[in-house]
């Protein structure tokens, strides 16, 4: 949705930027996004927000682990910011 730094592979920063972009696009104030915070109860992100985050991350990182992994192994539950970072880091390293 927004041009997120596409060149840098700092996945944690990119995930945070995506979450902040969702807050901004949905008219909510920005907030801190510590690695251990729960996406739902701590950060107030619902399934539509997560759907948007996936699109934003695919655009900036070039992978969609939800789609790419669907045919093979089910991914572990994604409950925290850190889970997201790990999922995308794994997807990127698995691809390269």
């Amino acid at each position: 949705m927004t041009a997120i730094n596409g060149g840098a592979r700092d996945v944690a920063a990119t995930v945070r930027e995506a979450i902040l972009a969702v807050y901004r696009d949905t008219g909510r104030p920005p907030r801190e996004t510590p690695a251990a915070s729960l996406l739902g109860s701590d950060l107030g992100l619902d399934s539509l927000d997560l759907a948007q985050i996936i699109v934003l991350l695919e655009r900036s990182l070039g992978v969609d682990p939800f789609r790419d992994a669907r045919a093979t192994t089910p991914h572990p539950p994604i409950r925290t910011v850190d889970h997201l970072v790990t999922l995308y880091s794994d997807a990127l390293s698995g691809r390269s």
């Binding site: 399934s47 759907a51 948007q52 996936i54 699109v55 669907r70």
Partner: peptide, 12 residues
């Protein structure tokens, strides 16, 4: 509609 793993599609 943009295909999406979480919600099936999202509006773009």
């Amino acid at each position: 509609g943009l295909p999406n793993a979480i919600t099936g599609e999202i509006v773009a």
